[in-house]
Amino acid sequence: MNSKHVDFENNAKQVLDDSVTSMSAATQSKLNQARHVALSHGKKSYVSYLPWFSGLVAASAVALLLIVVMPSAPSLSPPSFNMNQLEQLVMVEDLDLYSDLEFYQWLDDDNG
């Protein structure tokens, strides 16, 4: 990277830093409030709901799978297992959860 790029980057960084230090008191106050709200959320629900929710989804999936499989399984041979079926069973509307799972995957990939 040439020196002009470096000068430009330093200049931009300085301007952006200045914009933070000159932030209005009103905005800083709102950020302060937001932080306290966030920290209070942590105290209220520090126990993550995800294991419970995951357990509930897994239990529901197993129960539904048994309902689907049981009537057509008089023989002792294991029923054919359809991944698409399972995927549909555990599918939930909560896009946030998908996003989180993707995020957890990212964490595992890069920090694990």
Binding site: V37, A38, S48
Partner: peptide, 11 residues
């Protein structure tokens, strides 16, 4: 920012 802080704190 508030939502991000909440997520960070909770998770």
């Amino acid at each position: 920012v508030q939502n991000a802080m909440i997520k960070l704190v909770q998770k």
